[in-house]
Design a binder for these strands. Structure first.
Lengths: 191, 191
DNA sequence: CGAGAGAGAAAGAACGATCGTTCTTTTACG
DNA sequence: CGTAAAAGAACGATCGTTCTTTCTCTCTCG
């Protein structure tokens, strides 16, 4: 009894969200209209407005999905890590891998912020929550690994993550990756 | 003989460009239509399309103006510098000051790139040229100051500049500034 | 058991508003 | 008087959203 009323996430809603996410990320949010999303997803307007309140809700869901994916990746790394130091190394390698393989069009959150100037906008609040969470997790890992000034080191790693995502997109991705790995390992107190 | 045909830059064109630049930067490029630019500038459509080929040309002029402003700031710093090391310090302080005081809505080039996915687009080419130039200038200053691995250090400083511009906008600008100054001075081999 | 009423979701036309651009008219100056 | 710039109406296209219609099940009652 997989009622589409009680849990409609698996069906058209999920497909719609994935299609919209791809377009939003690859072409920018304001640049893609609902018509193209609907056309690419193979659904009609009524389907969209049944599962989402509007385009902005779709954008929020897109960023929340990105946030969930990153949290999932981090949890997977935490399971594989054999020590706090190893965890730091896995996080740094994971960021480099993500910038090099998946997020080749920059950071979804930074890009979204470029198009949403109002900090009170729900879209911006998703971005803020994600960044606060990510910084806190980094600080936690640094503290667990016994680092001094873990707050400062976490700030540095957040900045470097922003930098490698932007740099991989705008400049030479290979050089950005190497620069990131070197500086991030240094900032995290890794050999 | 300041003919408005031979050098129309001083008059309505300059005013239009400054108005458009402010709106593009503060609200995003795709988010501001020509109507609002015209309204805020106090001119009509005909004036815009006389001085610019279209909105895209206006965007290109906006970014070229940002590029020119940064080049001007760097030249001013070069005049004040009393030594290569001092020049490096001035550049780093200038970036921090710029992110903290003027560019509080992120980097105009990074933000523009979020909205223009096509690398062949004229807008993107302005961004590329700016970044290549900036990186080369940094490397030149580092070499002049006798630093080893000036290419690597230049890459690092470019990344840190991206990071502080993004971080000042999205996170706590004071913390971003401090983190940038510390890491950038370290990367440049400054005390 | 089968026909029909009814609810729910999808399809697609249509809405006003705004997008960037072009055109015709008016104004101003040499 | 003639030329060029500015004013503003108007263009088709697209924006995000809403509305009416169609379809498809399910449940019910004859």
């Amino acid at each position: 009894m997989k009622s589409s009323r009680e849990s409609p996430a698996s069906g058209p809603r999920q497909h719609l969200l994935e299609t919209a996410s791809r377009l939003f990320y690859l072409e920018g949010i304001n640049a893609v209209g609902v018509d193209r999303i609907l056309q690419q997803a193979g659904v009609t307007r009524a389907t969209l407005y049944r599962h989402f309140a509007g385009k902005e809700a779709l954008v929020v869901a897109y960023l929340e999905r990105e946030d969930a994916l990153i949290r999932h990746h981090l949890e997977a790394a935490a399971d594989r890590a054999v020590s706090p130091d190893h965890m730091l190394e896995l996080v740094i390698e994971g960021i480099a891998e993500d910038a090099w393989r998946h997020h080749t069009r920059g950071c979804p959150f930074i890009n979204a912020t470029a198009e949403f100037p109002d900090p009170a906008n729900p879209v911006r609040q998703v971005v803020s929550r994600h960044r606060v969470w990510f910084r806190a997790v980094l600080e936690e890992y640094l503290t667990a690994a016994g680092r001094e000034d873990s707050a400062i080191k976490a700030d540095t790693l957040v900045m470097l993550r922003d930098a490698v995502l932007v740099g991989s997109y705008l400049d030479d991705s290979e050089a950005s990756r190497r620069t990131f790995l070197r500086t991030a390992r240094c900032a995290a107190g890794l050999p």
